[in-house]
Design a binder for these strands. Sequence first.
RNA 1: GGAGCGUUGGUCAAGGGGUUAAGACACCUCCCUUUCACGGAGGAAUCACGGGUUCGAUUCCCGUACGCUCUACCA
Length: 504
Amino acid sequence: MKENIRVRFAPSPTGGLHLGGVRTALYNYLFAKQHGGSFVLRIEDTDQGRFVAGAEQYIADTLSWCGIEPDESPWKPGEFGPYRQSERKSMYADYAKKLVDEGYAYYAFDTPEELDNQRKTQPNFQYNQAHRNGLYNSLAMSGDEVKILLEKNTPFVIRIKMPEDENISFTDMIRGEVHFNSSQSDDKVLLKADGMPTYHLAVVVDDYLMKISHAFRGEEWLPSAPVHILLWKYLFGLENMPQWAHLPLILKPEGNGKLSKRAAEKLGFPIFSMNWTDPRSNEFTEGFRERGFLPEAFINMLAMLGWNDGTEQEIFSLPKLVEKFSIDRVHKAGAKFDFEKAKWFNHEWIKKTNIEILLPAIENIFQQKNIPIPHNEKSREIFELVKDRCTLLTDFIEQSIFFFEKPGNAGLESIRPKWNDQKNNFFTEIIRSYTLLPYWENEALENTFKEIAAANSIKPGELMLPFRVMLVGGKSGPGIFQIAEILGREETLERIQTSLKSLQ
RNA sequence: GGAGCGUUGGUCAAGGGGUUAAGACACCUCCCUUUCACGGAGGAAUCACGGGUUCGAUUCCCGUACGCUCUACCA
């Protein structure tokens, strides 16, 4: 075990941050913090052509929303910068050349078109030991030929020369021993024609230069691990290689396969942490945050997708996760994402979070919808009353809107069929009694209501629903006398009166 | 096609040679509430298949099936 724990998260900004990416970041962070180490954020923006403007900021914002603060990042450089791969460009070519000089890699002059042709004519074509001698590279030609081509500035890539039939194995922190045969992998491109490294070269060089001790990434990287292992062996020595952990994938809920934006869209749930507009297509995607998720619930839900602490506990705060997390309890198998369960986590967090803390987010939601609400004790009281019925932050609107806006007349239609003079008289009398009520308070309201009902020989049950519809406009919600109490005498009486008129 | 990885209810999962195979989400029933939620009680539902090893496999081993990932000058 290395002395200094340094865990890196190296997202590509080409597609923004999906659920899987945030979970990788989270696990990286948990592991680093738990061991008193550093969480290093490095941006893999090697592929300039597909670089998405604004993605970097988006990644920063996401992590910040989740409460995950990197110890080192492009915006908070440590001593191992720069932290943006595009700014590290000059560091890679020398290592690639060194590999060529030592016989571990070679120049390849084949154009992409030529290779495309090979793949068309040979279904399972691979640039590997079986084919490389018949291709246009420095292994298949004389040293003089190579020199001439290089002097003429012929475009080239540098490829790793995969050894023949060599056993490559390493210990994955989640999967244990994993074995590969070197003949299975093709000769991956290390340095592209534009001088930029591919991911394969870049991770290894960057992880070495940044003294990374632990590298966690998605399971999709497992098949290319042997290339990375070899590179470590050739360049820096296996003893300096970070410990690997390949995290299981997050799968889509229906059918099988990796969770994708398409799948999420089809089933109507977010896949991005926050709203995201793709600058290339202008396509807008709603995020978990705007959908009404609490960051605490978001990371809690993510953490539990592939890990648990072995007890029955499911609700964990970030500090608790740091305390309890253990990489060897992470699952090997992928987990299907379940939006219902995600909502359950949010519901639990809303219920346990103090209204004072929730208030800014709630007010924000109302503001987004252009519904003005007063910032006062009464609002707090209202939200406290409806809190337990809200699964998403956005539910606060639906659950409490009638406190802030008068309900329309539409709801009255549902009670009109059973409406009669007897009920009309009852409510007329209610208005009179409520006007005279010394204390406008829940229990007094209920008692009076029942007394008058009894005096008129009507079952209270037949009157409660009409009363509710008059005040709220719908058939559900908190206790109706509690609602009336908060609404206040004036507003309550006015709503009854308006309804009575409408029902004539 | 090849390689790697995986497989406990519909979903997330605990367990890991002998268990009535936890718990959560979702679903159903009942209670609470003169509403709807919340809450409470209960219910239905699972070890992919076939061989070993063993007194005994869901658990260990080997196959098979199925699924996923990768197989780009993308990450």
